[in-house]
């Protein structure tokens, strides 16, 4: 019972904190905007895309997408190794 009271009090404080954050701070008004201004001004002409998110992820920051694709590839290879088809006389190694 005491744990429940502590939990709900902390959750109340957390939700009040989140409510104040959602009401006072505005999204879309950052302080440092040099890079944003450059991308928004020259991105359309330099990459030819109207969607600025895609122009950043695939052109200006193409190495990030390359790393992300490599991570996904390695994850699928790992799953395929774990669930691979066993041969006839082969067994899982125990500890």
């Amino acid at each position: 019972m005491k744990k429940m009271i502590v939990l709900f009090t902390s959750l109340l404080i957390l939700s009040a904190f989140l409510g104040v954050m959602a009401l006072t701070f505005t999204f879309g008004a950052p302080k440092m905007t040099d890079m944003d201004d450059y991308f928004l001004r020259f991105g359309q002409e330099q990459t030819g895309t109207n969607n600025q998110c895609t122009s950043v992820t695939f052109d200006f920051r193409g190495f990030d997408t390359l790393g992300e694709s490599t991570v996904l590839f390695c994850a699928v290879i790992g799953v395929a190794l774990i669930f691979r088809k066993m041969q006839a006389g082969e067994e899982y190694e125990d500890e």
């Binding site: 020259f42 359309q44 030819g48 895309t49 109207n50 895609t54 193409g62």
Partner: peptide, 21 residues
């Protein structure tokens, strides 16, 4: 080529970005 500013959009633009997609 795509001009700067709000435009209607054309499917045949984008350079190599559609190939990457």
């Amino acid at each position: 080529p795509v001009p700067y500013g709000i435009n209607a959009g054309e499917l045949n633009t984008g350079g190599f970005v559609p190939l990457m997609n």
